[in-house]
Design a protein around this nucleic acid. Sequence first.
DNA 1: GTCTATATTGCGATAGAC
DNA 2: GTCTATCGCAATATAGAC
Lengths: 194, 194
Amino acid sequence: MDKKDFRTTLIATATRLFAERGLNGVSIRELSTAAGVSISMISYYFDGKEGLYSSVLSEQFSCFEYIQSIKERDSGPLDKVEEYIRWSIRRNREHPYLLRYYTSELTNPTRYFSAIVQPALETALQVLIGIIKEGIESNIFREELNPEDTALAMAGMVNYYFLSTLATQGFVNHSPERDEELIRHYMDIFTKGL
Amino acid sequence: MDKKDFRTTLIATATRLFAERGLNGVSIRELSTAAGVSISMISYYFDGKEGLYSSVLSEQFSCFEYIQSIKERDSGPLDKVEEYIRWSIRRNREHPYLLRYYTSELTNPTRYFSAIVQPALETALQVLIGIIKEGIESNIFREELNPEDTALAMAGMVNYYFLSTLATQGFVNHSPERDEELIRHYMDIFTKGL
DNA sequence: GTCTATATTGCGATAGAC
DNA sequence: GTCTATCGCAATATAGAC
Protein backbone atom coordinates (compact mmCIF):
# COMPACT_ATOMS: atom_id res chain seq x y z
CA MET A 1 0.00 0.00 0.00
CA ASP A 2 1.95 2.96 1.32
CA LYS A 3 5.40 2.73 -0.18
CA LYS A 4 6.44 6.02 1.40
CA ASP A 5 9.68 5.80 3.30
CA PHE A 6 10.35 7.42 6.65
CA ARG A 7 12.08 10.35 5.05
CA THR A 8 8.97 11.32 3.12
CA THR A 9 6.68 10.70 6.07
CA LEU A 10 8.80 12.86 8.32
CA ILE A 11 8.78 15.75 5.86
CA ALA A 12 5.02 15.54 5.45
CA THR A 13 4.40 15.53 9.19
CA ALA A 14 6.94 18.25 9.84
CA THR A 15 5.48 20.45 7.12
CA ARG A 16 2.13 20.47 8.89
CA LEU A 17 3.43 20.81 12.44
CA PHE A 18 6.09 23.47 11.80
CA ALA A 19 3.50 25.43 9.84
CA GLU A 20 0.95 25.24 12.61
CA ARG A 21 3.24 26.06 15.52
CA GLY A 22 6.59 27.19 14.17
CA LEU A 23 10.04 25.66 14.35
CA ASN A 24 10.37 26.31 18.08
CA GLY A 25 6.79 25.32 18.84
CA VAL A 26 7.25 21.66 17.97
CA SER A 27 9.59 19.16 19.62
CA ILE A 28 11.20 16.36 17.64
CA ARG A 29 9.70 13.99 20.18
CA GLU A 30 6.16 15.03 19.32
CA LEU A 31 6.98 15.19 15.65
CA SER A 32 8.44 11.71 15.45
CA THR A 33 5.53 10.28 17.42
CA ALA A 34 3.04 11.95 15.07
CA ALA A 35 4.94 10.49 12.12
CA GLY A 36 4.98 7.04 13.72
CA VAL A 37 8.77 6.91 13.60
CA SER A 38 11.52 6.79 16.17
CA ILE A 39 12.98 10.09 17.31
CA SER A 40 16.46 9.08 16.22
CA MET A 41 15.35 8.93 12.58
CA ILE A 42 15.37 12.73 12.45
CA SER A 43 19.08 12.88 13.11
CA TYR A 44 19.69 9.89 10.88
CA TYR A 45 17.93 11.34 7.82
CA PHE A 46 18.18 15.08 8.35
CA ASP A 47 21.05 15.60 10.77
CA GLY A 48 18.74 17.05 13.41
CA LYS A 49 15.69 19.23 13.74
CA GLU A 50 17.08 22.21 11.82
CA GLY A 51 18.05 20.01 8.92
CA LEU A 52 14.50 18.70 8.77
CA TYR A 53 13.21 22.25 8.80
CA SER A 54 15.48 23.24 5.92
CA SER A 55 14.26 20.27 3.89
CA VAL A 56 10.67 21.32 4.51
CA LEU A 57 11.52 24.86 3.48
CA SER A 58 13.21 23.74 0.25
CA GLU A 59 10.23 21.64 -0.73
CA GLN A 60 7.74 24.39 0.06
CA PHE A 61 9.55 26.99 -2.03
CA SER A 62 10.39 24.74 -4.97
CA CYS A 63 7.06 25.66 -6.57
CA PHE A 64 8.40 29.14 -7.25
CA GLU A 65 10.42 27.75 -10.13
CA TYR A 66 7.27 27.66 -12.21
CA ILE A 67 7.25 31.44 -12.44
CA GLN A 68 9.88 31.37 -15.21
CA SER A 69 7.35 29.82 -17.58
CA ILE A 70 5.08 32.87 -17.27
CA LYS A 71 7.93 35.17 -18.13
CA GLU A 72 8.69 33.32 -21.33
CA ARG A 73 5.07 32.99 -22.41
CA ASP A 74 4.07 34.40 -25.76
CA SER A 75 1.32 36.81 -24.72
CA GLY A 76 0.79 40.48 -23.88
CA PRO A 77 1.64 42.16 -20.57
CA LEU A 78 -1.97 42.25 -19.39
CA ASP A 79 -2.41 38.53 -20.00
CA LYS A 80 0.85 37.90 -18.19
CA VAL A 81 -0.32 39.94 -15.21
CA GLU A 82 -3.46 37.82 -15.11
CA GLU A 83 -1.37 34.66 -15.34
CA TYR A 84 0.73 35.89 -12.46
CA ILE A 85 -2.32 36.51 -10.28
CA ARG A 86 -3.79 33.16 -11.29
CA TRP A 87 -0.55 31.40 -10.43
CA SER A 88 -0.32 33.16 -7.05
CA ILE A 89 -3.81 32.04 -6.11
CA ARG A 90 -3.22 28.49 -7.31
CA ARG A 91 0.07 28.39 -5.42
CA ASN A 92 -1.69 29.27 -2.18
CA ARG A 93 -4.47 26.75 -2.83
CA GLU A 94 -2.12 23.89 -3.67
CA HIS A 95 0.32 24.63 -0.87
CA PRO A 96 -1.82 25.66 2.09
CA TYR A 97 1.15 25.85 4.46
CA LEU A 98 3.42 27.85 2.17
CA LEU A 99 2.24 31.29 3.28
CA ARG A 100 3.08 30.46 6.89
CA TYR A 101 6.69 29.72 6.04
CA TYR A 102 6.68 32.72 3.71
CA THR A 103 5.57 35.19 6.39
CA SER A 104 7.43 33.51 9.21
CA GLU A 105 10.72 33.69 7.30
CA LEU A 106 10.12 37.30 6.27
CA THR A 107 9.42 38.46 9.81
CA ASN A 108 11.60 36.01 11.79
CA PRO A 109 14.18 34.74 9.33
CA THR A 110 16.05 31.55 10.13
CA ARG A 111 19.54 30.87 8.84
CA TYR A 112 17.95 29.38 5.71
CA PHE A 113 16.22 32.56 4.62
CA SER A 114 18.95 33.88 2.35
CA ALA A 115 19.61 30.57 0.58
CA ILE A 116 16.05 29.33 0.13
CA VAL A 117 13.41 31.99 0.73
CA GLN A 118 14.96 35.22 -0.47
CA PRO A 119 15.93 33.92 -3.95
CA ALA A 120 12.46 32.43 -4.52
CA LEU A 121 10.63 35.62 -3.58
CA GLU A 122 13.03 37.88 -5.44
CA THR A 123 12.80 35.84 -8.63
CA ALA A 124 9.00 35.88 -8.59
CA LEU A 125 8.82 39.61 -7.95
CA GLN A 126 11.44 40.36 -10.59
CA VAL A 127 9.38 38.49 -13.15
CA LEU A 128 6.33 40.59 -12.25
CA ILE A 129 8.40 43.76 -12.36
CA GLY A 130 9.63 42.73 -15.81
CA ILE A 131 6.07 42.19 -17.03
CA ILE A 132 5.06 45.66 -15.86
CA LYS A 133 8.09 47.28 -17.47
CA GLU A 134 7.20 45.48 -20.68
CA GLY A 135 3.69 46.92 -20.46
CA ILE A 136 5.00 50.42 -19.91
CA GLU A 137 7.45 50.21 -22.79
CA SER A 138 4.75 49.03 -25.18
CA ASN A 139 2.45 51.84 -24.01
CA ILE A 140 -0.16 49.45 -22.64
CA PHE A 141 0.39 50.66 -19.09
CA ARG A 142 0.76 54.28 -18.01
CA GLU A 143 4.34 55.49 -18.12
CA GLU A 144 4.08 57.10 -14.67
CA LEU A 145 3.86 53.67 -13.06
CA ASN A 146 6.70 52.68 -10.77
CA PRO A 147 7.23 49.03 -11.76
CA GLU A 148 8.59 47.94 -8.37
CA ASP A 149 5.82 49.51 -6.29
CA THR A 150 3.18 48.23 -8.67
CA ALA A 151 4.53 44.69 -8.54
CA LEU A 152 4.57 44.75 -4.74
CA ALA A 153 1.01 46.09 -4.73
CA MET A 154 -0.18 43.19 -6.86
CA ALA A 155 1.69 40.52 -4.97
CA GLY A 156 0.48 41.98 -1.69
CA MET A 157 -3.12 42.03 -2.80
CA VAL A 158 -3.20 38.30 -3.55
CA ASN A 159 -1.11 37.15 -0.62
CA TYR A 160 -3.06 39.22 1.87
CA TYR A 161 -6.30 37.67 0.70
CA PHE A 162 -4.98 34.36 2.02
CA LEU A 163 -3.05 35.78 4.96
CA SER A 164 -6.10 37.53 6.35
CA THR A 165 -8.38 34.50 6.17
CA LEU A 166 -8.47 33.77 9.88
CA ALA A 167 -9.53 37.34 10.72
CA THR A 168 -11.95 37.84 7.82
CA GLN A 169 -13.72 34.53 7.31
CA GLY A 170 -16.73 35.90 9.16
CA PHE A 171 -17.42 38.50 6.48
CA VAL A 172 -15.46 37.45 3.39
CA ASN A 173 -16.13 34.24 1.52
CA HIS A 174 -12.76 32.55 0.96
CA SER A 175 -14.00 29.46 -0.85
CA PRO A 176 -12.06 28.30 -3.93
CA GLU A 177 -15.23 28.46 -6.02
CA ARG A 178 -14.92 32.21 -5.89
CA ASP A 179 -11.30 32.29 -7.14
CA GLU A 180 -12.15 33.06 -10.77
CA GLU A 181 -14.43 35.89 -9.71
CA LEU A 182 -11.59 37.18 -7.53
CA ILE A 183 -9.16 37.13 -10.42
CA ARG A 184 -11.64 39.05 -12.59
CA HIS A 185 -12.12 41.54 -9.81
CA TYR A 186 -8.42 42.09 -9.23
CA MET A 187 -7.88 42.57 -12.95
CA ASP A 188 -10.76 45.03 -13.03
CA ILE A 189 -9.31 47.10 -10.19
CA PHE A 190 -5.95 47.22 -11.87
CA THR A 191 -7.25 48.03 -15.34
CA LYS A 192 -10.10 50.39 -14.51
CA GLY A 193 -9.32 51.61 -10.99
CA LEU A 194 -12.08 52.36 -8.53
CA MET B 1 16.52 59.87 35.14
CA ASP B 2 14.72 56.72 34.07
CA LYS B 3 11.55 56.51 36.11
CA LYS B 4 10.38 53.43 34.23
CA ASP B 5 9.37 50.62 36.49
CA PHE B 6 10.16 46.96 35.91
CA ARG B 7 6.77 46.30 34.40
CA THR B 8 7.35 48.82 31.62
CA THR B 9 10.92 47.70 31.06
CA LEU B 10 9.85 44.07 30.74
CA ILE B 11 7.17 44.91 28.18
CA ALA B 12 9.61 46.96 26.12
CA THR B 13 12.24 44.23 26.10
CA ALA B 14 9.69 41.49 25.43
CA THR B 15 8.16 43.43 22.55
CA ARG B 16 11.48 43.44 20.76
CA LEU B 17 12.55 39.89 21.57
CA PHE B 18 9.19 38.18 20.91
CA ALA B 19 8.98 40.10 17.63
CA GLU B 20 12.45 39.04 16.57
CA ARG B 21 12.23 35.38 17.50
CA GLY B 22 8.65 34.56 18.41
CA LEU B 23 7.03 33.52 21.67
CA ASN B 24 8.74 30.13 21.68
CA GLY B 25 12.06 31.49 20.44
CA VAL B 26 12.82 33.46 23.59
CA SER B 27 13.25 32.13 27.11
CA ILE B 28 12.21 34.15 30.13
CA ARG B 29 15.76 33.69 31.40
CA GLU B 30 17.19 35.52 28.42
CA LEU B 31 14.40 38.06 28.45
CA SER B 32 14.81 38.98 32.11
CA THR B 33 18.57 39.24 31.72
CA ALA B 34 18.15 41.53 28.72
CA ALA B 35 15.77 43.67 30.73
CA GLY B 36 18.15 43.76 33.68
CA VAL B 37 15.57 42.25 35.97
CA SER B 38 15.24 39.03 37.91
CA ILE B 39 13.49 36.14 36.20
CA SER B 40 10.89 35.90 38.95
CA MET B 41 9.57 39.37 38.12
CA ILE B 42 7.84 37.95 35.06
CA SER B 43 5.62 35.73 37.15
CA TYR B 44 5.19 38.47 39.73
CA TYR B 45 3.97 41.11 37.25
CA PHE B 46 2.50 39.05 34.43
CA ASP B 47 1.72 35.65 35.90
CA GLY B 48 4.23 33.96 33.60
CA LYS B 49 5.56 34.14 30.09
CA GLU B 50 2.21 33.89 28.34
CA GLY B 51 0.79 36.69 30.43
CA LEU B 52 3.69 38.89 29.40
CA TYR B 53 3.07 38.00 25.78
CA SER B 54 -0.61 38.92 26.03
CA SER B 55 0.31 42.30 27.54
CA VAL B 56 2.70 42.92 24.65
CA LEU B 57 -0.03 41.96 22.20
CA SER B 58 -2.60 44.28 23.78
CA GLU B 59 -0.23 47.20 23.65
CA GLN B 60 0.76 46.54 20.04
CA PHE B 61 -2.82 46.38 18.79
CA SER B 62 -4.14 49.29 20.82
CA CYS B 63 -3.18 51.64 17.98
CA PHE B 64 -6.02 50.21 15.89
CA GLU B 65 -8.49 52.24 17.94
CA TYR B 66 -7.48 55.29 15.94
CA ILE B 67 -9.25 53.95 12.87
CA GLN B 68 -12.63 55.09 14.20
CA SER B 69 -11.60 58.70 13.74
CA ILE B 70 -11.18 58.19 9.99
CA LYS B 71 -14.66 56.73 9.72
CA GLU B 72 -16.24 59.74 11.35
CA ARG B 73 -14.23 62.28 9.40
CA ASP B 74 -16.10 64.84 7.35
CA SER B 75 -14.64 64.20 3.90
CA GLY B 76 -15.35 62.25 0.72
CA PRO B 77 -14.74 58.51 0.18
CA LEU B 78 -11.62 59.08 -1.90
CA ASP B 79 -10.07 61.27 0.79
CA LYS B 80 -10.98 58.69 3.37
CA VAL B 81 -9.29 55.95 1.33
CA GLU B 82 -6.17 58.09 1.20
CA GLU B 83 -6.39 58.66 4.96
CA TYR B 84 -6.68 54.93 5.48
CA ILE B 85 -3.58 54.24 3.40
CA ARG B 86 -1.71 57.04 5.15
CA TRP B 87 -2.68 55.69 8.55
CA SER B 88 -1.63 52.14 7.58
CA ILE B 89 1.80 53.34 6.55
CA ARG B 90 2.22 55.50 9.62
CA ARG B 91 1.11 52.62 11.81
CA ASN B 92 3.83 50.41 10.38
CA ARG B 93 6.45 53.15 10.73
CA GLU B 94 5.57 53.98 14.31
CA HIS B 95 5.22 50.38 15.42
CA PRO B 96 7.97 48.51 13.61
CA TYR B 97 7.24 45.24 15.43
CA LEU B 98 3.50 45.28 14.93
CA LEU B 99 3.47 43.49 11.57
CA ARG B 100 5.37 40.56 13.07
CA TYR B 101 2.70 39.98 15.70
CA TYR B 102 0.06 40.65 13.07
CA THR B 103 1.31 37.96 10.67
CA SER B 104 2.42 35.57 13.37
CA GLU B 105 -1.03 35.61 14.98
CA LEU B 106 -2.78 35.23 11.63
CA THR B 107 -0.72 32.21 10.63
CA ASN B 108 -0.01 30.68 14.05
CA PRO B 109 -2.67 32.07 16.36
CA THR B 110 -2.11 31.91 20.08
CA ARG B 111 -4.98 31.72 22.55
CA TYR B 112 -5.07 35.53 22.53
CA PHE B 113 -5.90 35.87 18.85
CA SER B 114 -9.68 35.98 19.17
CA ALA B 115 -9.74 38.47 22.04
CA ILE B 116 -7.02 40.88 20.93
CA VAL B 117 -6.00 40.45 17.30
CA GLN B 118 -9.17 39.44 15.49
CA PRO B 119 -11.30 42.36 16.77
CA ALA B 120 -8.62 44.90 15.89
CA LEU B 121 -8.18 43.64 12.33
CA GLU B 122 -11.89 43.19 11.73
CA THR B 123 -12.72 46.68 12.94
CA ALA B 124 -10.11 48.26 10.69
CA LEU B 125 -11.22 46.31 7.64
CA GLN B 126 -14.89 47.01 8.32
CA VAL B 127 -14.15 50.72 8.36
CA LEU B 128 -12.42 50.43 4.99
CA ILE B 129 -15.30 48.35 3.61
CA GLY B 130 -17.70 51.03 4.84
CA ILE B 131 -15.73 53.75 3.07
CA ILE B 132 -15.84 51.82 -0.20
CA LYS B 133 -19.58 51.17 0.12
CA GLU B 134 -20.07 54.87 0.74
CA GLY B 135 -18.13 55.61 -2.45
CA ILE B 136 -20.23 53.19 -4.46
CA GLU B 137 -23.51 54.55 -3.12
CA SER B 138 -22.54 58.10 -3.95
CA ASN B 139 -21.48 57.03 -7.47
CA ILE B 140 -17.86 58.01 -6.93
CA PHE B 141 -16.65 54.42 -7.25
CA ARG B 142 -17.86 51.90 -9.84
CA GLU B 143 -20.90 49.95 -8.73
CA GLU B 144 -19.40 46.64 -9.86
CA LEU B 145 -16.83 46.82 -7.07
CA ASN B 146 -17.03 44.17 -4.40
CA PRO B 147 -16.38 46.22 -1.23
CA GLU B 148 -14.87 43.35 0.76
CA ASP B 149 -12.42 42.23 -1.93
CA THR B 150 -11.46 45.79 -2.67
CA ALA B 151 -10.78 46.54 0.99
CA LEU B 152 -8.62 43.44 1.32
CA ALA B 153 -6.73 44.42 -1.83
CA MET B 154 -5.91 47.83 -0.39
CA ALA B 155 -4.96 46.59 3.04
CA GLY B 156 -2.83 43.88 1.47
CA MET B 157 -1.01 46.29 -0.78
CA VAL B 158 0.21 48.45 2.08
CA ASN B 159 0.98 45.67 4.52
CA TYR B 160 2.89 43.65 1.96
CA TYR B 161 5.11 46.62 1.20
CA PHE B 162 6.39 46.34 4.77
CA LEU B 163 6.17 42.57 5.04
CA SER B 164 8.34 42.03 1.97
CA THR B 165 11.10 44.41 3.06
CA LEU B 166 13.64 41.74 3.96
CA ALA B 167 13.33 40.08 0.54
CA THR B 168 13.09 43.24 -1.55
CA GLN B 169 15.43 45.76 0.03
CA GLY B 170 17.99 45.02 -2.66
CA PHE B 171 15.78 46.42 -5.42
CA VAL B 172 13.08 48.48 -3.72
CA ASN B 173 13.82 51.60 -1.70
CA HIS B 174 11.89 51.30 1.56
CA SER B 175 13.00 54.55 3.17
CA PRO B 176 10.36 56.66 4.93
CA GLU B 177 11.27 59.64 2.75
CA ARG B 178 9.51 57.85 -0.08
CA ASP B 179 6.27 57.29 1.84
CA GLU B 180 4.39 60.25 0.38
CA GLU B 181 5.38 59.22 -3.14
CA LEU B 182 4.14 55.73 -2.31
CA ILE B 183 0.78 57.03 -1.11
CA ARG B 184 0.41 59.07 -4.31
CA HIS B 185 1.29 56.00 -6.33
CA TYR B 186 -1.16 53.71 -4.55
CA MET B 187 -3.92 56.28 -4.98
CA ASP B 188 -3.03 56.58 -8.66
CA ILE B 189 -3.26 52.85 -9.20
CA PHE B 190 -6.62 52.70 -7.50
CA THR B 191 -8.08 55.72 -9.24
CA LYS B 192 -6.63 55.34 -12.73
CA GLY B 193 -5.65 51.67 -12.92
CA LEU B 194 -2.64 50.56 -14.89
C1' DG C 1 9.29 44.34 45.48
C1' DT C 2 13.18 41.94 44.35
C1' DC C 3 16.45 38.53 44.64
C1' DT C 4 18.84 33.69 44.62
C1' DA C 5 18.38 28.98 44.64
C1' DT C 6 16.05 25.08 43.39
C1' DA C 7 12.31 21.77 41.93
C1' DT C 8 10.54 19.73 37.99
C1' DT C 9 9.84 18.95 33.43
C1' DG C 10 11.02 18.60 28.77
C1' DC C 11 14.34 19.47 25.19
C1' DG C 12 17.80 17.73 21.20
C1' DA C 13 21.10 14.46 20.29
C1' DT C 14 23.25 10.00 20.29
C1' DA C 15 25.30 5.36 21.91
C1' DG C 16 24.59 0.91 21.34
C1' DA C 17 21.46 -3.22 20.77
C1' DC C 18 19.21 -5.57 17.11
C1' DG D 1 17.72 1.15 9.08
C1' DT D 2 15.39 1.34 13.21
C1' DC D 3 14.73 1.17 17.95
C1' DT D 4 15.17 2.07 23.19
C1' DA D 5 17.51 4.13 26.79
C1' DT D 6 19.98 7.75 28.45
C1' DC D 7 23.07 11.94 28.77
C1' DG D 8 23.50 16.70 29.51
C1' DC D 9 21.35 20.82 29.29
C1' DA D 10 17.87 24.49 29.33
C1' DA D 11 13.15 25.48 30.02
C1' DT D 12 9.30 27.61 33.35
C1' DA D 13 7.86 28.36 37.65
C1' DT D 14 8.22 29.20 42.53
C1' DA D 15 9.74 28.93 47.58
C1' DG D 16 11.77 31.52 50.75
C1' DA D 17 15.39 35.03 52.23
C1' DC D 18 15.82 39.94 52.49
